[in-house]
Each structure stands twice: as structure tokens, then as C-alpha cells.
Design a binder for these strands. Sequence first.
DNA 1: TCAAACGTCTTT
DNA 2: AAAGACGTTTGA
Length: 773
Amino acid sequence: MALSLSGDDEEYESESEQQRAAVNRPKPKMGTTSGVKLPSNRSSSGARRRRTRCRKCEACLRTECGECHFCKDMKKFGGPGRMKQSCIMRQCIAPVLPHTAVCVVCKEAGKEDTLESDEDKFNFMLMECSICNEIVHPNCLKVSDASGVVNDELPNCWECPKCNHAGKSGKVLKQKRGPGFKYASNLPGSLLREQKPVKEEGDISAVTKRRPDREETPRFRAEEALHRQPPLLSPSGQPRPRPEDKLRKKRKLFDDEDEEDLSMRKKEKMDDSYFSKLASQIKTEREDEDVYGEDDEDEKELHFRSSVDRRDTEEDFKNDPLNPSIRTPVGDSDQSYCSSPQAGPSSEGGSETQERGPRPKARRKRHLPNNRELSRELSKALNQEIQKTEDCLAIENRQPLKAEPETENEEPRRLFRNGNELGDQRTHLKAKEMNGTNWELRHFYQSPITPLGFNRSAPTTRPVPPRSPPKCVQMERHVIRPPPISPPPDRLPLKDGKAHVLQREVWMKIFSYLSHPELCVCMRVCKTWNRWCCDKRLWTKIDLNRCTSITPLMLSGIIRRQPVCLDLSWTNISKKQLSWLINRLPGLRVLKLSGCSWAAVSALCTSSCPLLRTLDVQWVEGLKDAQMRDLLSPPTDNRPGQLDNRCKLRNVEDLRLAGLDITDTSLRLISRQMPLLSRLDLSYCNHINDQSVNLLTAKGTTTRDSLTDINLSVCNRVTDYSLNFFKRCGSICQIDLRYCKQVTKTGCERFIAEMSVSVPFKLKEDKLLQKTS
DNA sequence: TCAAACGTCTTT
DNA sequence: AAAGACGTTTGA
């Protein structure tokens, strides 16, 4: 299929293939396999062990979805059973060598389980060479002057010392990641698409680290973006962004002319920093030099790893394209494709606004570019870069390009400090310099929401919900990487072969003081730093708020970092993307989806995130009672293995529902299904009234005791009477009734007076009641 | 022995 | 290039 050999892959031929060629099948086409048959003996180069699922990864643990292409083919689902493929949802993340695999030297199986130290484990585990396909215990090899290059993307996979030392390239490598990725990455609409290897051109790095495909990023078109209008005032008092903020000043900020500047600035920046000095000592860990150490605790928890930002080279360092704000020309959003979110169970509410026209443009002129605009532009710029990066890396990995980058958006040549390195390696270099950290940069430059002031004139007007993105021909195409088998090295290798004196954990301490943009800088220094800086401890919170385009690269970047808190508010993330993410972020505690479409948010209906504590779905387009019911109801899917009948959001403590057209129906469900709910934001909910408050605080409800903080600001149906209901809330600490027309100051004062006996309250602001002490 | 499914080839 | 087909490997 997609991973079949290109004409160059002449060294590879599997046993079965040979048999087939000889017996069962027509002769392979010329060029597909070499005329010279390789010995089928596995101990020799050429034959490769089929891998099998690990049975441990999340995918392996899933049950068949019954809906995908391959499930439908299965006999048990009524299909013909011809395709014989694993369910898409069950594509193993880290396919392993079969149990029958043995070392070609000692003929014994892997023995790592019997050993204690990491070093022993490594030495006695079976390693399959991605070049010669030999499976050996590293310890059984006698090559002392060269070490293997571990491929952290696939368990038990490396380039053996022999091949590595001989300078063989991985060009014959067909599937570094092995099976299990194959179909998932090639299915229509799959998030996991990948490409066939392509003819090698030029001198490219020895190891073919696979790259995610060039993405066909779902994006909003400029017009569409204008339609996505967050509220003018967020319930937390944060003003909502205005349409005029969006998509202005397309190129100005990142004009090509700044490119020169960039190298200078980079130079300066690096020259006078300690890092730059250090960097000069650091051994540049090119792909073919990199030897990974053992797994570290944190990374073991990661189920996926992407190679997004794993390209770091000298070039990276020298050409640090770090400051995106002065960097890439921003392409027009004409190439913006939109994903094709499938509406969730209750998608009916989401489409009515799709045809809305753009807002009056006059408003757009009003203010100067602010940080948010900047970030938006950056987002686009970076996405584009990422796309190009992928192209380049596709070349680097001898994968065919899906398409050439749009000429008009072609990245201008940069001034490299070492211009001579550009030469014939330009493509490669370009790929490297654009090291997948790009996306990471973007969100750092997103500013916090800039206050625009309260707009009370029409506070309860719902923002125009984001338009549902149109179908995208090629949606996310992205490869997820398994986590590294081996951890980063404990010490930083230096050029002289020695290791830096500081241990990794010391570096981690240092890194922990850095901002995310700074971490991105560090990630470009070398591979080791790249890996270290990706430690999830440094990325507990990832903010993609108002990112106009969530790209597959970003998704895998997120997975790689395993954030605890993820803000995807006001993005055009699709259902598929969100679902994909949630399923891969088992530790996610905070998920912010405000301003997203219900189509996207409905991913929560089918994905389980039992650890989720904070859910922000304010201003979600089309999220009404029916949808809320879907969100809160137990999974309807009761296929075998689907045993959890509890509410998927049962552990939510902080629920933000501002700006939703929900009624008491939803509140009943909430009070029933979220026993731990402590903070509830219902601001701008026009249907909320005293009866709603009564419901939430009624006898027998868990919310009565669990609620500590409720936001009812701009709920115009709420009156002073609600305050009586709050008196029975045992834990209530804050009641926000600001801008509730029917709530009076007198009413609040009365509440304070009456409560003073038991719980002292104060008016922090007008109609904002807060417990003192 | 059998179901599952990997990896490659063929067909579209 | 993508989708489909299928022999063979793998684990139970």
C-alpha cells in the first residue's frame, strides 16, 4: 500500500514476498524489487521481521470501532473480510518485534526483562536494524568503535553499529515505524496519513526519520475567520476579541525584508548569550549521530511522540528562525482548507449561522495591531512554515511531496551565517532550520486577551458562532510517534566527545525558568536540548487560544508534551482533531473550548476524559440543551469493552457555560451528573433564572454543597430572589451577579447581612459577592 | 488450528 | 496516489 517500496528500495524484500513472487503471485514489476534475490534467511540483510501490535498502547487496548473502513470489511461486522486490516482506531502506536524474534548471533530472545540496569536492558534487548533488518542483542555485537543509532520512534529499532559505522543510509528503510501505522496513515480522512518513500535526491542525512506528511491544514479562510466572533465580554470579565482583530495586516509584520534582520538578530542574540557559548561546545547531534539513552520517567508516560520538533542541527542553531514575528512572509489564507468536522450527536444546532456575512469592515480599521493580531498572523505564518518544513523533510526522508509549496508563498532564502552550507543541501537545510518547533513558537506569542472594555450595550448578544468549516479534501495527515524507548541522555554530549558537566535534571531546573518561547530557542540548539525541552513538565499548560488554524503538527506537538491544561478556545479545531487529541491526552485536566463549534466539541461525547476537571465550553456555537444532554449522558456506545456507563464528565469541578442557550433542563443534568462541580459559569445565559438557581441549590443535589463559585453575571432573568437560594449552599464563596438587571444592591446587602451570622460576605464589586476570610 | 492483521502487490 | 486484495505471519 502506501508504504510499498519505491524503485530504489531494491535491497528490501521480505521472505513472504519472495515466496509470493516465486509461487503465488505474478512476478513483481521491474524496479519494485531487485532482480537479485536476497537470502530469505533473516539473519542476513534484506528480510525483515514483521512486527506485531504491542497490546499495551492505547490503540491496542481499544475495541474495534465497528465503523471504520476496515471494521466494515471484517466478517464480524458483516463485511467480506477481504482487506484483513486492523481497525483504524486500533492501529498500534508502537508495534513490537514478535515473540518469536531472536538474536541472529546467539539465537536467543530479548532478555531485557530479566535485567535491572538500563544499560543491561539495552544490551540484552533485541534490536532490529532498520537498514539491514538484522535483529541482535547489542551485547552480541562485537563492534566496539561505533554505536548504533536508536530509533526512538519504534520499539527495538535502531541502525546497528555495522550499518551506522559503514555509513549506510537508511534509504532502504521502508517503515521505520513498522506496521501498525500503515493504514491508519493512509485512510481517507485519517489523522495519520503518511507517504511512500520517495527517490532519494541529494545528500541527505543518514537516517530517514520519518516526518509527518505535509499537512493540508484545515484553516479558516479569511472571510470565515471574520465570522468567528467571540463575545465582547467573556464571562470572566475578559473582553472578547473582535472580528476586526482578525486577519489584518497580513504581511507587514513579517515581511521578507526582515529576513536579513533575522539572521543578524539571531547572531547577536546567540553571540552574547551563555547558550551560544555552550552551543558551540555541544556536539551537534545529527540524526545519524544521535544515540539515545534510556527512557526517563516522564517520557514513559507519553504514548506518542512526534518528530515534529526533532530536527535540530547545526543549521538550526545557526539559522535560528526564532523570532517568528520578524520572519516569514505570511501567506494568504487562500490555501486555508477547512477540516470537515462531523457534527456530533446533536449537531442540528450548529449550522444556522453559517451563512452569515462579514461584519462591517469599518470596525476593523479601528485599532492598531495588537498582540493577538500578531499571534494570529504568526499562527498563519508558522503554519505555513510547518507545511514547508514538512515538504522539506519529506524530501529529507525521501518521501514524495504531496505538492510543491505554493510559489507565491515560497519562503525566501535566508542569509545564513554559513552560506556555504546552503548549497546543494539547501532543501535539507531548510528543513532543518525550520525544525518542527515552529508551532511551538506560535502560541507563545499569543498575547493574553487584551481588554477591550466592557461593552454593556449589548452584553447578551451571542457572538456569531464560528462557521463550521467546509469539508476538507485532505484532512489531517499526520503521523503520531510512539514515545521514545530511550530517554534523553543524562548529560549533554559535547563536540570533543565528552559530556557536559551538568546533569540533565540540572538542565531541567534551568529550563523550568524559561518561558515557552525561550524553550523553543533552546529546542533548536541540539537534539538533546530539543528532547529535554520537550519534557512535559515544562509544558503543563499549552495555550492555543485563538489560533486560527490547528494543524496536525500542532496536534502531535501537543501530544508529545502531554499538557495538563489545553486551551483551544476560539480555534477551528475539528471534531476529529479534538477527538484525536483527547484520546491521546490521558492526563488532561483542563480543556478550554470556548468559541469552538459544537461540531468540534461534540468530540467529547464519544471520547472519554475521566480526569477532566475544568471544561470551558462557553460560547460554543450550537451548544444547547440537547447537546448538553449528549455531553453529559453516559456513552451510548455499549459495544464489548465499553463498560463505563458513567458520565464522561463526572469529575468536572469547573464548568464554564457562559453564553449558552441552555435552560433548566441542562442544569438538572449538571447537578445530577457532576457531583464535584464547584465552579459554575453561567454568565450570559439568557435562560437562566431564579428557578435555575433553585434547581442548583435544591435539597438533595450535590451542587448544593459542592458549589463554591457561581457566575451569573449578565443573566437578566436572575433576581434578588436567587440570593435566598444561595443561602443554603454550604460551600459558596463567590456569587457573581454583576450586570444582572434584576439584581439590586439592596438585595445583595441584605444577603450579606443575613449571612453575616454564619458566613461573612462582602461586596467585592457591585453585585459581586465574595466570602470574606 | 484459527482469527487477526502485516506488508506488499494489484487495481483503480 | 489511493484504494483494494491477499498471502503469510503471528499469537492465542
